[in-house]
Amino acid sequence: MLLRAIRYDLKTGIFRKWFLYLAFGILMGAFAEKAYQWLNVFQLKGSALDVLLYLFKGNREFRKDELEGFEFPFPFMAIMTLVFFFFVYYVYKEWKERSSLTIPRFQDKSIWWISKCLMNVIHVLVLLVVSLLFVSLVAMLHGSYGLIYHSQVFELLEWQVLQVNQIWIYLGICMPVTVLALTQLELYLQLICSPVVGYVIILGLLLISTFYYSKWIPGDYLILNRTALMREGGITPLQILVVDGIIILVTLILGLWTMRKKECL
């Protein structure tokens, strides 16, 4: 039954939103193109990997004593606004409007919720693949193939990648898992209050993260210069995965608990 439930959510939740995934890809591609134009000014050749690092390098947090230091990260917030837009209404609508059609067919409210969480895992994987694909595509148009890290690009930015061998741990694991945890939190908030509240809370968290550095606000995990990848003593993968894991587990269990009592009115 769970398998059938996931198949249902894949169809209604993911396939039906293909145009949003396309929009996400194009947005990533557009920012990648902008990054290349900037690199071209300095006659640097960057790979798709450099561009991804550049896009998610993020801004330096707000500091009272440095008036010039803070720059609002528009690209980052634009990407995140879209990333968390996919399921703004999904769980809410599926429950509020479609549950009398679907729930008796699922025969189980727990399966309904677990399936939403598993759909989210697939969603995050698709986002990862789409970003890699579109950024690589733009990189190829600029004559760069493969995913190799070039330190010159980051010297120019006066930032450096401290642990080159861990780049993929951050890009391929920590960031997707953080998006997963935050989306699941968003889905859970839709179960207990309104969909808009869920979306606003998540974007609020990300906004706070752009201004402040905290090891405990997950938004910071999506900004690479707050992590140990680019900052001495920054947030480590272990910390990121533990906090994300707690969010995922707690919202999963709270969701199951909420579902047990939830009525279809």
């Binding site: 609508k93 409007e97 479609r98 009398s100 059609l101 729930i103 008796p104 025969q107 189980d108």
Partner: peptide, 14 residues
């Protein structure tokens, strides 16, 4: 949890 074999049309299904 639910009747095993039931078909429901309630008010306005979406």
């Amino acid at each position: 949890s639910f009747p095993e074999s039931i078909g429901i049309l309630l008010e306005n299904p979406a």
